[in-house]
């Protein structure tokens, strides 16, 4: 698996798309964060666009995983003798770290902006506590990409899954149900600036991540690759 990770890191460092997506993410966030009223800190305000900008993470999954099936790269790894478990671990690790970095770097960017503009303290604790929820949110596009094994379908179905989750945040009773959805955790953090039931939230994130991680692996483990 180390060899695969080295190859994946080489690709990542010789590719422009993660930076392009992060810049797009940052630009969209900057527009959405203008809703910031002074009532919240910059960092808290940035939590609001994160939920809506998840469609860019769908794009990352489509490029980082779906497109790798299209370009026959994953097939190449398998036929080179790497076990499917190793290929899955390497791909999911690189995707998860890339997506999480995009999320967290955006939060950090706005944290620094708040510190520079209004002298707000950078709440590193909140950023760390958000990480499991962000990881859990990012699992859905990954699952779709491993299930569909194509960039186009990963994008299409990924957007659908994204739209359903966003829609679920706009239904009555979301305040009570938010704790059971990683998307809802962003809503709670935005609303309260802290997590009042963090052990429950963490448990939900872990279960959510495990379910989608296992689903992704099962979709890949014994499937025929074109």
């Amino acid at each position: 698996m180390t060899k695969l990770i080295r190859a994946e890191v080489y690709k990542l460092t010789h590719s422009l798309y993660p930076w392009g997506i992060w810049l797009a993410y940052l630009a969209f966030s900057a527009v959405l964060v203008r809703d910031h009223t002074g009532e919240f800190t910059y960092l808290r305000s940035a939590l609001y666009p994160i939920t809506f900008l998840q469609f860019l993470i769908v794009g990352i999954a489509a490029v980082c995983i779906g497109n790798e099936f299209n370009n026959r790269v994953i097939q190449g790894y398998v036929s080179s003798g790497h076990s499917r478990a190793a290929v899955f671990c390497a791909k999911s690790l690189i995707y998860s770290v890339s997506a999480l970095m995009i999320n967290e770097l955006t939060l950090l960017f706005f944290g620094i902006q708040g510190w520079m503009v209004s002298g707000e303290s950078i709440d590193a604790g909140l950023m760390i506590r958000l990480a499991p929820s962000l990881l859990a949110m990012n699992m859905v596009p990954m699952f779709v990409a491993f299930l569909t094994k194509s960039s186009g379908k990963a994008m299409g179905f990924g957007f659908l899954a994204y739209a359903l989750q966003v829609a679920s945040l706009n239904t009555p009773g979301i305040t009570e149900r938010a704790v059971y959805l990683p998307y809802g955790h962003m809503f709670i953090a935005f609303r309260d600036g802290a997590f009042s039931h963090y052990p429950v939230i963490l448990a939900v994130d872990i279960v959510w991540s495990l379910v989608f991680l296992t689903g992704s692996y099962l979709a890949f483990r014994r499937s025929d690759l074109k």
């Binding site: 190859a7 370009n71 790269v73």
Partner: peptide, 25 residues
């Protein structure tokens, strides 16, 4: 092997493509 077309990264050079393969192998 080459099965149904080679595994290539279009945005990379030929050398970089082979470097990825060298690393993964």
């Amino acid at each position: 092997c080459i099965i149904e077309g080679p595994a290539l990264y279009p945005s990379m050079t030929a050398y970089q493509n082979l470097e990825v393969q060298r690393l993964q192998r």
